[in-house]
């Protein structure tokens, strides 16, 4: 079981590495912003998987805090975008 959890964690890490490079090299400026999305999902996934493998239950708390910060950041980000929409009339 632990082997499988570790394997999935490493697989996600490989995914994250490939995706980060692809996003950073992306053709437009907006592709680079995809990194913000990747850290929230794949990053938390790796953390929670490593918690049982490394016998570090505190990693779940780290993942929770990361998710919380990502949520606050995401909502703030979207709210700013929306408020500017309301303000501009173009």
């Amino acid at each position: 079981m632990t082997t499988l959890v570790l394997a999935v964690a490493l697989f996600l890490l490989a995914n994250l590495a490939v995706a980060l490079i692809a996003a950073a090299r992306g053709p437009t400026a907006a592709d680079g912003m995809l990194v913000a999305l990747l850290i929230g999902t794949t990053g938390t996934g790796i953390l929670v998987l490593l918690a049982p493998v490394m016998h570090l239950p505190a990693l779940v708390d780290v993942a929770l805090v990361l998710a919380l910060l990502a949520a606050i950041g995401g909502i703030a980000f979207a709210k700013r975008a929306w408020q500017r929409t309301e303000g501009e009339h173009d």
Binding site: A70, G74, I75
Partner: peptide
């Protein structure tokens, strides 16, 4: 953790799409 990451993804993807 799941609903938090969902809220994050939803907000960030709208913000990126709008910026793009």
């Amino acid at each position: 953790i799941w609903p938090l990451v969902m809220a994050a993804s939803a907000g960030i993807s709208f913000a990126i799409a709008r910026r793009a």
